[in-house]
Structures are given as structure tokens and as C-alpha cells.
Deep mutational scan, measured.
Amino acid sequence: MEVRTIKVFTTVDNINLHTQVVDMSMTYGQQFGPTYLDGADVTKIKPHNSHEGKTFYVLPNDDTLRVEAFEYYHTTDPSFLGRYMSALNHTKKWKYPQVNGLTSIKWADNNCYLATALLTLQQIELKFNPPALQDAYYRARAGEAANFCALILAYCNKTVGELGDVRETMSYLFQHANLDSCKRVLNVVCKTCGQQQTTLKGVEAVMYMGTLSYEQFKKGVQIPCTCGKQATKYLVQQESPFVMMSAPPAQYELKHGTFTCASEYTGNYQCGHYKHITSKETLYCIDGALLTKSSEYKGPITDVFYKENSYTTTIK
């Protein structure tokens, strides 16, 4: 009895394709271990004539594949690729409408935090270190965002349907971005203890939790000093293409032309909904596939993004 075979390709990165001759009487799992086709788990399936010449994702289970996976995804987590594939199996079914010149995501599976993050990423200057993220990001900007969303979920250790947080998501993504040249110098002034300067680099240099107003941050924000008295913390120097200011959701007025974009969060910790506000020729609110415009805006804002380049204080 002759062994019926077909020729397929296996890959971990969709760049390096490895030619395989597979036995049609055995499952993919018996031949390769966990195997995925377009995100779908085909591990328990036997090869079919229609699979001839198709590319299958496999887990990096030998040295060659491990090197290829690390170079593309910059992670050695053995569960990463499987999590990416199972997320992709959902995100490829989502709709990605162009809204006001940006790629958004039609609401499904509690994905409003991903839509808000995706919209924000198209408006701030950011370059990702893992080629996987950078490639998928370019495709997302062009309207094909399924891979990018699935990668975000995998890097953030999230599953489809789980509630997510924009600030946490951005923080994970910033860790995989090139923020080497970003720098922030802060000064804390206390009447009792004097003053202390701190220099922050990388992710810490672009994120701040405690106030939404970048102007206020430049002037000074009140913080408790270690001595128990009130101290003032203010920005001395900022070198970065953008800054992200966050605070627990509270009524906040966004003035046209003073910011790049913002995240609105309605609801409580267990259950809520994100919308995205962007400042173009007027203010726009993007909620999944829905767009509304207004000249002014007041609502429960939790993150505001500002364009920056270089700032030095005039406070002496």
C-alpha cells in the first residue's frame, strides 16, 4: 500500500517557510505537534488534498525554529505562539472599519479597549522592536488589523473576551517599542525636605499616572512627601515624541487643539466601556464603527496623549 502524501510549508514567522512532505494517514499533531492554519487549530486533523502548498504555523520545537521565533517575536515564552494563534482565530472574524481616516474595530468580545489602543497607536510616533509587531502594525494602518490585535493580546497575556485596560495595554506595548531616546527629568520640591531631581528613561519617561493635564504637570502637581507634608512635583525636561497622561476616570474637559487623542471610560472596574476622542479640525468621538463630532467635550476621561518633541522648564 502506497503512502499518500502532500507537500506543505511549516513556519513560526510566515517569513521562513520549511518544506514538509506530510503523510495523509496521520494527523498534523502526530507529525508536527500543535499546528495552526489561519489561526485555526488543526492539530487533530489529517492532511487533505486542499492543504497542498498551504502554510501551517507550528510551535518552535527545534533550534532553527526557536531562533526564527525569537528573532521575529522577541520572546522565548513557549506558550506565546499558541496564544497568538488562538487569538487570531477570533480577531480574523472582527470587522476593521476605516473611521475618520483611522483603522478602528467594530465592537465584539469586549474589544473596546483594543480599538482605543489601536486608534491611539496610529496617532503617536512609535516604532516597535519585534519585527512581528512592526509588520502587523503597518498592515493594521492599511486596514488589516487582525494579526496586530492578536499579537497585542498575546504580548499582554490576554484572551479574547476578557476586559482590558488601555493604560495597561499601552504599557505592555511600550515595553516592546523603541523608547531608548526618551528621557524625563522631574523635580520634587518640599518646604521641609528641599528639592530632589529624578531622571527617568524609556517607558517611565512617557507615562504618568495622577493627572490628565500635561500643562498642569509642567506647572506642578501636589504629591505627598515622605515627611508627610505636601510637596510639588513638576516637569523639568521632556525628550520624547509623545507623552501619555493618565488618571482614574473623572469628568474632564478636553479643549480642541490642546491634545492629540484621549480615552474615555464609562462604567466601573468590573464592567465598563471605552471610547476614543481625537482632536482634528474639530473633536471626534470614535466608538467602534461609530463616529460623532463636537466642538467641545466633557466626560469621564482616563488617558490623554500629547505630541511632544523637546521641553525644558522655565521655572527657576
Rank of each mutant, 00 (worst) to 15 (best):
E2P: 11
V3T: 12
R4F: 11
T5M: 13
T5V: 11
K7C: 12
F9T: 09
F9C: 11
F9M: 13
T10R: 10
T10D: 01
T10C: 13
T11N: 06
V12P: 07
D13F: 05
I15K: 14
L17K: 11
L17H: 12
L17I: 07
H18P: 05
Q20A: 14
Q20Y: 10
V21D: 14
V22Q: 06
D23P: 10
D23V: 14
M24Y: 10
S25L: 12
M26Q: 13
M26F: 08
Y28R: 05
G29M: 11
G29V: 06
Q30D: 12
Q31V: 15
F32R: 07
Y36S: 05
L37V: 09
D38L: 09
D38F: 10
A40E: 15
A40G: 13
V42M: 12
T43I: 06
T43M: 10
T43S: 13
K44P: 13
K44M: 12
I45E: 14
K46P: 12
P47D: 02
P47Y: 04
H48Y: 14
H48E: 14
H48C: 12
N49T: 13
S50K: 12
H51K: 05
H51Y: 06
K54Y: 15
K54S: 13
T55Y: 08
F56S: 04
L59S: 12
L59R: 08
P60T: 07
D62H: 08
D62W: 07
D63G: 08
D63A: 11
D63C: 07
D63H: 08
T64N: 13
L65E: 08
L65M: 10
L65K: 11
V67M: 14
E68H: 07
A69K: 02
E71D: 14
E71V: 05
Y72G: 06
Y72R: 09
Y73C: 03
T75D: 08
T75M: 09
D77R: 05
D77W: 03
S79K: 14
L81N: 02
M85Q: 09
A87G: 07
N89R: 14
N89D: 11
T91D: 04
K92T: 10
K93V: 10
W94P: 03
K95I: 14
K95M: 11
K95D: 15
Y96F: 12
Q98L: 13
Q98H: 09
V99K: 12
V99D: 02
V99A: 08
V99Y: 12
V99C: 11
G101F: 02
T103S: 04
I105V: 07
K106C: 07
W107G: 04
N110A: 05
N111T: 03
C112H: 03
C112S: 01
Y113M: 04
Y113P: 05
L114N: 04
L114E: 03
A115S: 09
A115L: 05
A117S: 09
A117I: 06
L119K: 02
T120W: 02
T120E: 03
E125K: 09
E125Y: 06
E125L: 03
L126W: 02
L126D: 05
L126P: 08
K127P: 12
N129G: 09
N129T: 09
N129Q: 11
P131H: 03
P131E: 01
A132S: 07
A132V: 04
A132G: 07
A132H: 04
L133A: 02
D135H: 11
D135F: 08
Y137D: 04
G143D: 03
E144D: 15
F148R: 02
C149I: 09
C149G: 04
L151N: 02
L153K: 05
A154N: 05
Y155H: 02
N157V: 03
T159I: 08
V160Q: 04
V160P: 07
G161L: 01
E162I: 02
L163A: 14
G164V: 05
G164I: 01
G164T: 04
D165S: 15
V166P: 03
E168W: 06
M170E: 00
S171H: 15
L173D: 04
Q175D: 06
A177Y: 01
N178Q: 10
L179V: 05
D180T: 10
S181H: 15
C182D: 02
L186Y: 15
L186C: 10
V188F: 07
T192N: 13
C193T: 02
C193E: 04
G194Q: 02
Q196T: 13
Q197I: 09
T199P: 03
T199Y: 07
L200M: 10
K201L: 12
G202I: 00
V203G: 06
V203A: 12
V203E: 06
A205F: 00
A205D: 00
V206M: 03
V206W: 01
Y208L: 06
M209C: 15
L212S: 03
L212Q: 01
L212G: 02
L212D: 03
L212H: 05
L212E: 01
K218Q: 06
G220E: 05
P224D: 11
P224F: 10
T226Y: 11
T226R: 15
G228P: 00
G228W: 00
K229F: 09
K229Q: 13
Q230A: 13
Q230R: 13
A231K: 05
T232Q: 08
K233V: 12
L235N: 01
V236P: 02
V236A: 10
M244R: 02
M245S: 00
M245N: 03
S246N: 00
P248M: 15
P248A: 09
A250Q: 15
Q251G: 08
Y252V: 13
Y252A: 09
E253R: 08
L254I: 03
K255A: 10
K255Q: 12
K255G: 07
K255L: 11
K255S: 09
G257R: 06
T258S: 13
A262Y: 00
A262D: 02
S263W: 00
E264N: 02
Y265I: 01
G267F: 07
N268M: 10
Y269S: 15
Q270A: 15
G272P: 01
H273D: 00
Y274G: 00
K275R: 15
K275E: 03
K275G: 02
I277S: 00
T278M: 11
E281P: 02
E281A: 06
Y284E: 11
C285R: 07
C285V: 13
I286W: 00
A289C: 08
A289R: 05
L290E: 15
L291N: 13
L291C: 11
T292W: 07
K293L: 09
S295I: 10
E296H: 15
Y297D: 00
Y297W: 12
Y297F: 11
P300F: 15
D303I: 03
F305P: 00
E308V: 12
N309R: 10
N309V: 13
S310T: 13
Y311I: 11
Y311A: 08
T312W: 09
T312G: 09
T313Y: 15
T314W: 13
I315V: 14
K316Y: 15
